[in-house]
């Protein structure tokens, strides 16, 4: 009788190898802004990986001469190119702020839940505001 109940309890939750309980699954994890901040740090890092390759391409085209540079900047200046460059601007500012946040984490600071929430929101807000500011300045100056 007792064995049956223990068996049913075992079946009620997922078990990992060696009959150890599994950690909470992705789908039942409560959404949280610190989670978003973590995902964004990695996602913007990957975006900047591609962005660095775009910048190296720009440097190469510059070294190849005015024709190559003109063709390359024409692609970057198209609406799709500008969209990518705007995304890179957001990625630069977000990854920069998130990097500083993680340097604080490395020193042991900023782990209080309220502080961590606040700095996560601050990083996202900074990325949006700084990117819009830079692009607004560029548009006003007539370069974008």
């Amino acid at each position: 009788m007792g064995d049956v109940r223990a068996d049913a309890q075992q079946k009620a939750r997922p078990r990992g190898p060696g009959s150890m309980p599994l950690s909470p699954h992705l789908q039942i994890w409560r959404w949280h802004v610190t989670m978003l901040a973590s995902i964004l740090t990695r996602a913007t890092g990957v975006a900047l990986y591609v962005g660095a390759l775009i910048v190296v391409g720009l440097a190469l085209s510059l070294a190849l001469g005015p024709d190559a540079y003109g063709a390359y900047t024409a692609v970057l200046g198209s609406w799709l190119g500008k969209l990518v460059l705007f995304g890179l601007t957001v990625s630069i500012f977000y990854h920069l702020a998130a990097g500083l946040r993680h340097l604080a984490f490395d020193s042991g600071a900023g782990f209080q839940p309220k502080t961590a929430d606040m700095t996560a929101v601050a990083c996202i807000a900074f990325a949006v505001v700084a990117s819009l500011g830079v692009w607004a300045a560029a548009i006003v100056a007539g370069v974008a």
Partner: peptide, 28 residues
């Protein structure tokens, strides 16, 4: 490398704006 990239990436934004302004000659 991350700490070094803090000022360098801010400079990159500045340089990007300047490059957008001056064309090929400006970039060179």
């Amino acid at each position: 490398t991350g700490i070094a990239l803090v000022p360098l990436s801010l400079w990159a934004v500045y340089a990007g704006l300047r490059i957008a302004q001056g064309g090929y000659d400006g970039a060179v």
